[in-house]
């Protein structure tokens, strides 16, 4: 078990305690202990199939939507285990928003894309103002302001992704989860989204899964490195585990684990 060694005044906003996630009988990731600090950007990195996206989706119960997916252990958010039977996953997702790998705007106008989430969350204030401030925070206002009534699909891929971020901000979650938000985008759009993330850090806690180690280095305060090992019974299947969790600086400059060193220097993955 790897402990968070960073001395910090920030409080834990989300904690994983001995979490194992399985798809049917296949165990995807096991025995994860992880503490996310409020106001940090934490990135989850690791080779394909190590379960980092699975862990991310577990944080706002998106895995509920995948048949046969089950979780053992506790995920504490705000002092509550979000996998408690009494917890309403809809309420969890309102407070922990998510941005996906593929830009997925609704087939509605740009304005409605933002307003939809706010409205279903019972927002009663000035909608025009909310739309503008959300688009501004996601750094896409200048591209959108003259065509708020156009379809969300009329934007470019990078703009669509920032629209999706704006949509998530509009419901004012406490945590924003991002599942490889830049993997479908070109470098310039990626840079813009990273700038957006730095802006958002002031108000939100961000957890991001990325395949791009430079990106992890550029944006995150903390980095969790996941790895996968073959099952002990050796039938070829792999199970993911948390190999190392530390400040991004330490992970990239002086990792404790040999596998971390090998992964960040590009020897595998």
């Amino acid at each position: 078990m790897i402990k968070n060694t960073k001395k910090s005044q920030k409080k834990n906003i989300l904690s994983l305690e001995d979490v194992s996630i399985s798809y049917g009988t296949f165990e995807a990731v096991k025995n994860v202990f992880l503490n996310f600090k409020a106001g940090d950007i934490t990135s989850l990195i690791g080779p394909s199939g190590c379960g980092k996206s699975t862990v991310l989706r577990a944080l706002n119960r998106m895995n509920d939507l995948i048949p046969n997916c089950s979780l053992k252990g506790t995920v504490l958010f705000d002092g509550t285990n979000i996998y408690d039977k009494r917890v309403d996953p809809v309420e969890v997702r309102r407070r922990i928003g998510m941005v996906f790998q593929q830009p997925n705007p609704f087939p509605k106008s740009i304005y409605e894309n933002i307003a939809f989430g706010a409205r279903i969350n019972g927002f009663t204030g000035d909608m025009d103002e909310l739309v503008e401030s959300s688009l501004r925070k996601a750094a896409v206002w200048s591209e959108c302001k003259d065509k708020l009534n156009d379809s969300g699909y009329s934007l470019s891929g990078g703009q669509q992704q920032r629209l999706c971020i704006a949509r998530t901000i509009a419901i004012e979650p406490e945590i924003i989860l991002m599942d490889e938000p830049c993997s479908a985008l070109d470098p310039i759009s990626t840079l813009k989204i990273e700038e957006t993330m730095h802006e958002l850090k002031k108000n939100y806690t961000i957890i991001i899964v990325t395949h791009n180690m430079q990106q992890a280095l550029r944006v995150s305060d903390m980095t969790a490195f996941f790895n996968a090992v073959e099952y002990e019974d050796g039938d070829g299947g792999k199970v993911g585990y948390l190999a190392e969790f530390d400040s991004t600086k330490k992970i990239f400059n002086s990792p404790k684990e040999k596998t971390t060193q090998e992964y960040i220097s590009g020897k595998f993955g």
Binding site: V90, R94, M98, F116, G117, I120, I171
Partner: peptide, 24 residues
């Protein structure tokens, strides 16, 4: 992805179906 998008911002299943999936 559209369903996830809607559920991911805290829409309930029935709002998602009524407002997003069915119109699409």
């Amino acid at each position: 992805e559209l369903r996830y998008a809607s559920l991911g911002i805290g829409a309930s299943m029935y709002t998602t179906i009524l407002k997003i999936t069915l119109p699409t």
